[in-house]
Design a protein around this nucleic acid. Structure first.
Lengths: 214, 214
DNA sequence: CCGCGATGTATCGGGCTGATACATCGCAAC
DNA sequence: GTTGCGATGTATCAGCCCGATACATCGCGG
């Protein structure tokens, strides 16, 4: 999972560890608190020894007139790494559908082909629907056996599940009709689907999700 | 964290490992996927060697005429364990406010005094508000630097944050005014509460778990 | 009587975290 | 000027936790 994330970020630009961590934190911040260095550095070493990335120490102090940065290690993705990234992007196991895995995959959706995007969205939806059903069963069957606070927690969880399913459904519909997730809904939607709000603010960037790399 | 959860469940009733896991899964299912045996059993051993719980093997095959259950190990909380549970319930560290920690604490709110409940709810709210602010900053500052999918993920995360803050706010208000989270809002699908089925195996414990109100 | 799914206990490799350590840079306060 | 401090940066370690796996038993239907 982390492997995919790192490869994906390094494909955008070479980075050193600290930068990588910050980038991970902002891009996956929603889904994953913040990757720890205790994970990051060993993983980078692993990726390096596997040949997916290259390390390049930068302690050339003499050259840069601006800021003679201290020795840090810039990681760069290799050709094999790009290949590996493509594999990881396309394949979807069970761990693709949990919170962390889905978040990472989703982050790179603009570099994923549409079929895979749909597969992953539907897998995630299935996962959340199962959780939702479990919650519903529990609330209707054992509802009165639980105390008020536990009940409230479950209700809140159920609510989040229903909301996420709706979100996924919308995304799936958009995928099928060939739209990218343009800016739309303002935080509150209640029960009504406002169908007429896109088609005005078309995103100028992000033309088409490409699959191969330069 | 697991320690608190186990102690709390065992205070309701003695259980063996399998049962404990199922109970954990349903009560904390919202917040934590499902505790693994690879975690559960070592933890139980640790709690036992610390003296918080007692193990009692049940392979008395001869006695019971009904079901000669195979040897399983029933865990029971000790007096020291109850004391420990009380400590853990009252103290709140940083890990109290992450998803897992908050979920566990919240589950046992009916056995927590009001002051602690408020402290935890407010701490959690603060945590989520920080996440929310981070997301908002990111969306307003670097919004156009991110691709459409990443953006959409962040928006969804922000939405979830705002929703949770509102939920917490409501709970806090209720706490201050002395209400417990009785069933209130919708999310319902015609729930007719089927009453009258407890009083069978339920322990006569649970007299008056929370403080009175001023 | 045989498989098969649920129940039940237990271990192991490995991923991930939080704490910790160390070192450098830029900047502001005194 | 030097002292402190926070951001940047790399790195390790104990320990928690998960997924996979291995057993063994029970109750059930074919």
């Amino acid at each position: 999972m982390l492997e995919l994330a790192i490869l994906g970020l390094l494909q955008e630009a070479p980075m050193h560890g600290y930068e990588l961590r910050k980038e991970l934190a902002t891009k996956l911040g929603t889904i994953r608190a913040a990757i720890s260095y205790g994970t990051l550095y060993p993983t980078l070493k692993r990726l390096h020894s596997a040949g997916w990335i290259s390390e390049q120490a930068t302690q050339t102090d003499i050259v840069p007139p601006m800021t003679s940065k201290r020795g840090r290690i810039v990681y760069k993705i290799t050709a094999e790494g790009k290949e590996r990234f493509g594999e990881l992007l396309a394949q979807a196991g069970p761990e693709t559908y949990d919170d962390a895995g889905f978040g990472v995959h989703f982050t790179f959706f603009s570099r994923t082909d549409r079929a895979t995007r749909l597969r992953i969205l539907e897998g995630r939806r299935r996962r959340i629907e199962e959780r939702r059903e479990g919650l519903r069963d529990m609330l209707s069957r054992a509802g009165d056996r639980l105390d008020a606070y536990t009940l409230e927690l479950q209700r809140h969880g159920l609510d989040a599940c229903e909301r996420e399913v709706r979100w996924l459904e919308e995304l799936i519909t958009n995928e099928r009709s060939g739209r990218t997730p343009s800016a739309g809904h303002g935080t509150e939607s209640g029960t009504t689907h406002p169908p007429a709000d896109q088609a005005a603010g078309a995103p100028p960037e992000d033309p088409a999700p490409h699959q191969d790399r330069p």
